[in-house]
Design a protein around this nucleic acid. Sequence first.
DNA 1: ATTATAGTTGAACAACTGTTCAACTGTCAA
DNA 2: TTGACAGTTGAACAGTTGTTCAACTATAAT
Lengths: 109, 109
Amino acid sequence: MENVDLDTVNKVKPKMPDTTLLYELSDFFKLMGDSTRIRLLWALEENEMCVGELALLLNMTKSAVSHQLKALRSAKLVKAQKRGKNVFYALSDHHVRTVLEMALEHVAE
Amino acid sequence: MENVDLDTVNKVKPKMPDTTLLYELSDFFKLMGDSTRIRLLWALEENEMCVGELALLLNMTKSAVSHQLKALRSAKLVKAQKRGKNVFYALSDHHVRTVLEMALEHVAE
DNA sequence: ATTATAGTTGAACAACTGTTCAACTGTCAA
DNA sequence: TTGACAGTTGAACAGTTGTTCAACTATAAT
């Protein structure tokens, strides 16, 4: 004897996005849900930088930075370019900028 | 003998947002970075619903749903209203809608 | 060739996260 | 008041995550 409105549930059910899409969506947000990665993205929005510069800027080890850059890279949020001994990273998509600004607006209110 | 451009680092450093803001920002994304919570938000965008309905819709226990709703509630993303034996949840802010659609656009490309 | 630096990688570890379970509160109906 | 149902809560557990460490590759300079 459940006290739920089945009509409501059945009305909403077909409007839910595809499961695959939902996972991609939450994976995207998961990637942003870490202060280190957010800082990396923010920094790269200002300037392309190599791993050592990013490490210095964020006061972290190169290893830690490299690990996080790898995550951002496999999500295609940043791209890497090797020049000499250095690997320079840059935003691959300025869609990211919009989302960041959007969220900042939400948070800052 | 570090091979980094200190000028770049020093130029970017003051442009980085305040630490507190960065944490709020990543906390916000962290909250979205879970498929259950995303689905809850999506569902509530269609209709306010009680815990039992949400549990049915998402095929989860009421307990699990309740736990996640609590997280969303303390972040002020949803609001609760008790009516009789039921507790109805609704989006407290349709800023959320914009961010979701924004991100969806990014993911869906 | 040798050495030093830049960056990457994988394993290990601690910290955190989401779900389950069981016990609980509060509300309605009989 | 008793019973049934809606929802909440905290502890426990497994799975995941981020950083560290040490070993590694690759490039440049001497």
